[in-house]
């Protein structure tokens, strides 16, 4: 499978007047064609900043300070805003968390949708209109002929998210990044939107990065997962390995802290004690160490590399080091990756 996206040692920092907020601290991952990659982690772990970094949309005072974002081999971080805007909405699209505020209230849905189409395709207004109707139908908006003339306030939250998705997929992007696309929606609508995304993935043949703090969402549609914490990657795995055999204490903590109605088992919810690290002065070691029940001396000093557990799983935890004490469920591996 061809790699569509390679993120290499990405570091994004906000230079605020209070100090440097190191939101993303040297993360690397690949996305292969056809993947639906989930990025999961508590709020504040750097998921949104990661996706905005890929899009080249990090706001002042933030900046990518290190690393590469290779899209089909081309480093996007080297492009200026104008060159980047040829990719955005065209080859790489993004949808956001809150459909209520993410769509411009002052223009009709049709106006905003046609604008995206005309910007990237050179269609005239009439052709763009036809394409817009097609897209609205594709994302499941009923009566598109009427709805296309509506203003966003006439749409419900779920319908707005559908409209925003229609803009994002207007030019058949190769990569679609969805940052918590269902978090702001009702549970029933959530399921519909996820269903729509799965459906679109095959229809327009796009790869997807789905950001969420909800492991349930991940288990429903992703085939690969990255677990992020404190701006770093804790664990990287395919979906089966991750749920069957989580290899990072943070991943385990996450799993114990969500209801497992997926498996039907009733279990007590165990919250992770403590709070996420202060990214202004991040701990020098593993960001999770202050909350980790297995934390060792080395964990506080030095973040673990990603240990390769299997062909489909890597985890950044010293427990995998051959010299580490035996902990039930954690695999020892010979060398660092």
């Amino acid at each position: 499978m061809a790699k569509i996206l390679e993120v290499k040692n990405l570091r994004t920092t906000f230079f605020t007047h209070l100090g440097e907020v190191q939101a993303v601290r040297g993360i690397s991952f690949d996305l292969e064609e056809g993947d639906i990659l989930g990025i999961v982690g508590e709020s504040g772990s750097g998921k949104s900043v990661t996706s905005l970094s890929i899009m080249g949309l990090v706001d002042e005072p933030g900046r990518i300070v290190e690393g590469e974002v290779l899209f089909e081999g081309l480093d996007l971080t080297k492009l200026d805003q104008k060159e980047m805007s040829n990719y955005r909405g065209n080859e790489i699209s993004m949808i956001f968390q809150d459909p209520m505020t993410s769509i411009n209230p002052a223009f009709t849905v049709g106006n905003q949708l046609r604008e995206v189409i005309m910007t990237h395709t050179g269609m005239n207004k009439e052709q763009a209109h036809q394409r817009a109707l097609e897209l609205l139908t594709m994302v499941g908006i009923p009566e598109p002929e009427t709805r296309i003339k509506n203003h966003p306030y006439q749409f419900s939250g779920g319908m707005r998210q559908r409209a925003l998705i229609s803009m994002a997929i207007a030019c058949n992007p190769k990569l679609l990044i969805a940052d918590e696309p269902t978090t702001a929606l009702d549970v029933t609508i959530q399921a519909q939107i996820l269903e729509l995304m799965r459906d679109l993935k095959t229809k327009i043949n796009t790869s997807i990065i789905l950001i969420t703090h909800d492991l349930g969402v991940i288990s429903e549609i992703c085939n690969k997962v990255i677990v992020m914490y404190g701006g770093m990657i804790m664990e990287k795995a395919d979906i089966i390995s991750l749920f069957d055999n989580p290899q990072h204490p943070y991943t385990r903590g996450l799993m114990l802290s969500v209801p497992r109605n997926v498996t039907g088992k009733k279990a007590r919810l165990i919250p992770i004690e403590g709070s996420p690290p202060d990214l202004m002065a991040p701990p020098s070691g593993c960001p999770f160490s202050p909350r980790c029940q297995h934390a060792m001396e080395i964990c506080l000093k030095k973040a673990a590399p990603l240990f390769k557990i299997s062909d489909t799983q890597e985890a950044s935890c010293w427990l995998h080091h051959p010299d580490a004490p035996e902990v039930k469920g954690f695999v020892k591996v010979a060398g660092e990756k």
């Binding site: 909405g89 956001f96 809150d98 990237h120 994002a168």
Partner: peptide, 23 residues
Amino acid sequence: DYIRTARANGLSETRVIGKHALK
């Protein structure tokens, strides 16, 4: 947020400011 959406959709800065923000 809708300004970020306009940028994410690849609209030129002229359009983002002159159309989406200004109105």
